[in-house]
Simulated assay, not measured.
Amino acid sequence: MKRKRLDDPDLPLEDLMAMWPETIPVFLRHKMLCVGCLVNPFHTVIDACLEYGLNVDDFFDELAEALNPAPQ
Score class of each variant (00 low, 15 high):
V39R: 10
A64I: 08
A64M: 00
L67W: 08
E62F: 09
G36M: 07
T44R: 15
L63E: 07
L63Q: 04
D10K: 09
A70H: 10
C34T: 11
D57T: 07
R29C: 00
K2T: 03
L33H: 06
F27C: 01
M17Q: 03
R29D: 11
P12F: 02
W20E: 02
N55M: 08
F60S: 08
D58V: 14
D7M: 09
V26W: 03
L11M: 05
L67A: 06
D47N: 15
D8L: 00
R3H: 09
P12E: 02
F27Q: 03
G53Y: 12
M19V: 01
K31Q: 12
A66D: 10
M19T: 03
E22P: 06
E22Q: 13
I46N: 13
E51K: 09
K31D: 12
K31C: 05
K31F: 01
M19H: 13
L54V: 04
D15S: 00
F42D: 08
D58S: 14
M19G: 05
P71D: 04
V39C: 15
R29E: 12
L50N: 14
L11G: 03
N55T: 09
R5A: 01
D47P: 14
F27N: 00
C34G: 07
I46E: 15
N68G: 10
M1V: 04
L13D: 00
E65R: 07
R3K: 08
L11F: 03
F42C: 11
D57W: 13
P25V: 03
A70E: 04
L63C: 13
D7N: 11
L16V: 01
D8I: 05
L16I: 01
A70S: 14
V45M: 01
T44H: 11
C34L: 00
V26T: 06
V35S: 14
H30N: 10
P69N: 04
M17W: 03
A48I: 12
M32C: 06
G36V: 11
A64Q: 09
E14I: 04
N68Q: 10
M17F: 01
M1K: 04
K2W: 01
E14Q: 07
F42R: 13
Y52V: 09
M17T: 02
M19K: 10
Q72C: 06
M19A: 01
D57P: 13
F60L: 06
K4L: 08
V35Y: 14
G36N: 09
I24R: 05
D58I: 10
L50G: 12
F59E: 02
E22S: 09
C49A: 10
H30I: 10
V39S: 04
G36H: 11
L6H: 02
D7F: 05
D58C: 12
V26I: 02
G53F: 07
N68M: 00
P9D: 00
D61N: 13
L28C: 13
Q72D: 12
E62R: 08
